[in-house]
Write a protein that binds this DNA or RNA. Sequence first.
DNA 1: GCCGACGGTCACAATCGCGTCACATGCCCG
DNA 2: CGGGCATGTGACGCGATTGTGACCGTCGGC
Lengths: 224, 224
Amino acid sequence: MQAINIFLTGRLGETLEDFMHGETRYAFDRLYPDGPHRVVEGPVCAFVDWVMDDLSGLEMCRRLRADPRTEDAHITIVLEEDDALDKRRALKAGADDYMVGPLDRTQVLDRVMALQAGCGQPGIAERLELGELTIDAAALQARWAGEPLDLRPNEFRLLRFFAQNPDRVLTRADLIEALGKQEPPIDERTVDVWIGRLRKALRAAGAGERVRTVRSLGYVYDSR
Amino acid sequence: MQAINIFLTGRLGETLEDFMHGETRYAFDRLYPDGPHRVVEGPVCAFVDWVMDDLSGLEMCRRLRADPRTEDAHITIVLEEDDALDKRRALKAGADDYMVGPLDRTQVLDRVMALQAGCGQPGIAERLELGELTIDAAALQARWAGEPLDLRPNEFRLLRFFAQNPDRVLTRADLIEALGKQEPPIDERTVDVWIGRLRKALRAAGAGERVRTVRSLGYVYDSR
DNA sequence: GCCGACGGTCACAATCGCGTCACATGCCCG
DNA sequence: CGGGCATGTGACGCGATTGTGACCGTCGGC
């Protein structure tokens, strides 16, 4: 018995919009209602921690790949495993990527998003553009008016998430979760500091004030 | 035994109009006539304070989601819980959002409306437009003729409520309740000040005089 | 092992938002 | 025309919230 994490990203017969709002969870529940899995919503993918033996993890991979309902869906499966399972078997079962644990949610997210951006699947933006802002998830780089932004990893992730949800209030909890930082639990006030650092970087690039504070609720990235 | 608040927003087989006027309560009563719940009407959602153990709260979530009568209804369920119930379980049960208490009605309203506006469900206005006025509930921002209005949170909420009930006399009590400020009780005179500040902001944006006083009754937002 | 980069936390200051008050103004009615 | 009530508004002060510099632990590279 051991934990296998399967990260489903993209669509399961749902639109990207639905997916972003958690519909994938339901699609997954419908597919595997009896699974001993738990789903944690991430910004771009549903994390499914599947606690069972190795083979079942691979088996799920295969079923997902084989299921007609996911035929034309854009699925990225990332298997996290220890040495007991070799990469070859994982890929053969339909995994798109393979990581060895222990894993850091933050980095997994980067990887998953880079995978999505890099594989040129329709329906998933290869490059995210929002006015002057350009996010290249595959290269982990952001640009403002063509000029590379000097962002540290955390700031990049933050901006990426903002760009994925522009003109929408995002709570501090949203942002913490989006960055995959719920473990260990992070003080919400820390987000303030992230925001401050991101703002400074944007200001330095001449982007002005894009991140607006919504008192007692969170922050908004104003796309215009 | 503990309090679980479930905020039902959207429709339960009723029209949005009905809902706005409290029909949801009746729909809810019909669904769960024997529940030990009490319903407090808010301007955009029915607050259901459900006093029972955790599982029953989640159970209600599930039943609402599973009930065929709510199948094509637009339901936003917001669960407020303490640490005893983790977000994962709440979401799995069908909650659209999850908040940890203690909660402030004012902020809950903002959040619920942002949720509604942000998830692009049909039947619920993503963006509220009324002549030159545009209300973007998801971004918590209002615009006049495309230009962002410089409103403080309370003023925004006020204008949002006016825009939802244009050309209709709203009493001070209506406005206080709409802003979720019944606790602690607020002096009705305070509304005058809110109005004054809102008027000033609208004037500054070139919107002229949109809020008309109806002596000894309340105020009206004149849409034209 | 040293060093620099990065990120989380803290503490403090500054700001902001808002409710209330006091006073001025205006309106209605007798 | 006068009294009384209703409303508009500037000022004030209290809390809550936020921004930020400083500090420090950690991690990875050399």
